[in-house]
């Protein structure tokens, strides 16, 4: 690994999820005044800009990097943030990457829910607990809908964006656990130590995303 270059004390390190959200995030952060541009397609995972370093991460890892202070701030979906259980500052709703976390069952399913497949076990357990449903959760990694269709689970808790996948697979949304959008998250110490850079960034992002 190449060593990180020597940086000024007010250098910012930002954790961003790779993929589509990265483009939206970089566009928004540029509008908010950071000297960023979409990195060239390469295998680099760390992108250097004047006074800012971007770390390109799996979205589940963004809260970890920010909470532990390796990154000063980051952008991540509220769904992933809630599931991480990390206590970071989350001052701005960036209002993109909208989706909802929902309880989903096969159309017409009425039996008792005893097993729930999900990528979000923490959120699923909290929901089941709040509804007094005694069911076990099975942690899965992808194509969660299959758990319902194959009998692995009686229901799943998963993200819904448009609902297209659901109707194509004879599934229906029973209840929305919560709505999610991308959030700016900030390390608790970094907000204070690097206030001169982070406060204006927060103000600008609020102004840009105001409804």
């Amino acid at each position: 690994m190449t060593p990180a270059p020597v940086r000024s004390p007010d250098h910012l390190t930002l954790a961003l999820p790779k993929g589509r959200i990265l483009e939206d995030a970089i566009a928004l952060l540029s509008q908010a005044g950071l000297p960023l541009s979409m990195p060239e397609k390469s295998r680099a995972l760390r992108h250097e800009f004047p006074g800012v370093t971007i770390l390109e991460l799996r979205n589940q890892d963004v809260p970890t990097y920010v909470d532990l202070g390796v990154a000063d701030a980051g952008i991540v979906g509220k769904d992933v943030l809630t599931e991480s259980g990390r206590t970071v500052y989350e001052p701005v709703d960036l209002r993109f990457a909208a989706c909802r976390l929902s309880l989903i069952r096969e159309v017409g399913a009425t039996g008792e829910i005893t097993r729930v497949g999900t990528k979000y076990p923490r959120a699923a357990r909290a929901y089941l607990h709040s509804r007094c449903i005694t069911a076990e959760t099975v942690k899965l990694s992808g194509n969660i809908e299959l758990a319902c269709l194959t009998g692995l689970a009686d229901a799943v808790v998963d993200l819904v964006q448009t609902g297209g996948t659901l109707s194509a697979n004879n599934l229906q949304e029973i209840e929305v656990l919560f709505h999610s959008t991308a959030r700016l998250i900030v390390n608790r110490a970094a907000l204070k130590v690097r206030a001169a850079r982070l406060r204006p960034l927060i103000e600008n992002l609020r102004a840009l995303t105001a409804p």
Binding site: T87, Y89, R183
Partner: peptide, 8 residues
């Protein structure tokens, strides 16, 4: 408030 979460 402790998470400075305006959205929440």
């Amino acid at each position: 408030i402790d998470r400075k979460s305006g959205p929440d």
